[in-house]
Write a protein that binds this DNA or RNA. Structure first.
Lengths: 98, 98
DNA sequence: AATTTCTTGTTTATATTATAAACTTATTTA
DNA sequence: TAAATAAGTTTATAATATAAACAAGAAATT
């Protein structure tokens, strides 16, 4: 019997998936941009970025801009790969089928 | 700024999404079939079916077959609607975009 | 006929997640 | 200089997912 495959738990989270989806389509994005674009709270975003970073899906660079902290995120090759795998896996769930 | 929409938390769960995906494509399915098809444990499946039922996404009928308990699940109109909404919502996450 | 095993689940306990609230540190602005 | 803003982090809580333990009846075994 054909069963539905596993969905990567790192990506099967609304906020982490949103972040990765944004980063896949852009060169880089800073904390404030991601916060506004995803509509998340800063606390939740901070935690989920840390998770994505510790799993190697994104890189995080902390610098300053206009004397204020600037957190810049970029997707890694692993992040891109995992995102593509996730997209294929969940597609199977979206097509109704016995 | 265009933000990514909310993903229905009832459906944004690997096992519940799998169950609904199966039920959308079939007339009905019993507990054992769903358990094998999804590869889940009985305990987890029991909890998630109860959740889908209490949210009105599926109906559960408990009868007997060959003197054994038989739990039969069917999707409800609400379940179908919510599934369709979920599919559209998550599609936006799967297309990379800034 | 008693005991063990199998079927078909449910209940309970635990680990993981997501989220928000509170806090921190530095920078403007009134 | 006091208050407000910016840009986050840390901590606490609530919600989830999962597995482990349990239950009750049917069938098989000794």
């Amino acid at each position: 019997m054909k069963t539905l495959g596993e969905l990567d738990p790192v990506l099967h989270s609304q906020l982490r998936l949103a972040v990765v989806s944004i980063l896949v389509g852009t060169e880089e994005a800073d904390f404030t941009f991601l916060k506004e674009k995803t509509g998340s709270t800063a606390g939740n975003l901070s935690v989920q970025l840390e998770k994505l970073s510790s799993e190697g899906y994104i890189s995080i660079e902390k610098t300053f801009r206009n004397k204020r902290p600037l957190t810049t995120c970029r997707i890694t090759p692993k992040g891109i790969r995992q995102f593509e795998i996730y997209v294929k896996a969940i597609q199977a769930y979206l097509k109704p089928g016995k």
